[in-house]
Design a binder for these strands. Structure first.
Lengths: 218, 218
DNA sequence: TAGATTGTTAATCGATTAACAATC
DNA sequence: TAGATTGTTAATCGATTAACAATC
């Protein structure tokens, strides 16, 4: 019971979808929104929306709905979107380049401060306005720029090695895109996006989908 | 009860991790593997591994473990990794380029057959050995190449429009990377990878993580 | 007041975990 | 035979859904 007050993971995953719907409501000039409308945006029943929002404290008005500006603010606070997260990327392949150039991240408080690559030919060239650095400089840069988060976009065989270097140099959050399971100390927060396993689950659903079109009972 | 025999989603998501561990076992020349070892690779207890594998039918030998080659084959079959999935990409920005160039997908049965972009300046140039085509050609190409799957990597505001075009032209599976909720007919299989919502959940965990370092009870 | 919508309780559903007989 | 490990049942845990009093 380390985490008595932790929000359930499924609820947490839905909150950003409500947040997105709220931003649309702001654009549309809507001041009030119902759990029904939020639920439709996230593909869940209204009751679940109310349960989820209940984890944030009480904010809706019975008979009326949720106040769009104040619920937006509460979600930004709860999701920590306002707090600055200083990050670096290791591995400037196609994916690293894509993430470095993704403009949407800034709105979620992610600030990219440095990029690294092991390839000497890439070092010194520029991506997203940042000069690619050699890995040997990583310790100095992490300290100088007070970077907390490392985004790992190297090929799978190098990912653990890179993670170890990041941890040694004081990184406390790792966002891993390499298709491999990393081992890090408990004190380090690790979240992975694994496109290969996503594709594998999609692949299974495709095969089932095909079967259903032949025999709907399958 | 349309899906009586469907595997639970959490189990399905773990199967690719077991599969990855099995490939390592093959490389290491191990013929037999225990639920314990598979569980460690996926970060779950051995009992859960046995439950998950139970959904595939019976394959382990009590007192011994699982036969690596036959469990591998069974997983490839169940996950549909062997069946060819012909795909196209719409949107050759940084992310589209990254996915087009990702070599790992072929091993999961994904075959990229065409790439499209709305920007006339990009049409005719090459990515991953494929000439970028204009969207006006999409219907013809889908038919000629018998493409089932569309990978959407356009900016969010265009994603629904692109999805509609794909559906109109007979695409039955959409893998969406645009940070927006798409609406498609029930007959179309939709799976989304939403980096913005992933970042938002990570952001929340970071803030909690920081708080815990100050007050471990939080 | 009547109608709408929330917050919350209780019921339902489903996944995880523990335990152990059966098997090698 | 003794030790190891599976498959499966039962117990536990947690999330989802339904229902409704309270509120606007």
């Amino acid at each position: 019971m380390v985490n008595q007050s932790a929000i359930p993971a499924p609820s947490l995953r839905r909150l950003p979808l409500y947040y997105r719907r709220l931003q649309q409501a702001i654009q549309d000039g809507e001041d009030i929104i119902s759990s029904q409308a939020l639920g439709e945006a996230a593909g869940v029943p209204a009751a679940q929306v109310r349960k989820d929002i209940g984890h944030l404290g009480e904010y809706g008005r019975p008979g009326v709905g949720y106040d769009v500006p104040s619920l937006t603010t509460r979600l930004e606070e709860f999701l920590g979107l306002v707090s600055e997260k200083r990050a670096l990327i290791v591995g400037v392949g196609n994916l690293g380049r894509a993430l470095a150039s993704y403009p949407g991240f800034t709105r979620y408080g992610l600030h990219l401060r440095a990029v690294f690559d092991a390839d000497p030919a890439k070092v010194g060239t520029t991506v997203a306005g940042l000069q690619i650095q050699s890995l040997s400089e990583i310790g100095t840069t992490i300290q100088q720029e007070r970077i907390q988060m490392g985004i790992v976009t190297v090929p799978a065989p190098y990912a653990q090695e890179v993670a170890d270097i990041l941890v040694e140099n004081g990184i406390s959050v790792i966002w891993n895109f390499a298709p491999t399971s990393l081992v890090v100390p408990d004190s380090v927060l690790l979240q992975s996006v694994d496109l290969a396993t996503e594709l594998a689950t999609l692949s299974h659903r495709i095969v089932r989908h095909r079967m259903r079109q032949i025999d709907p009972r399958a």
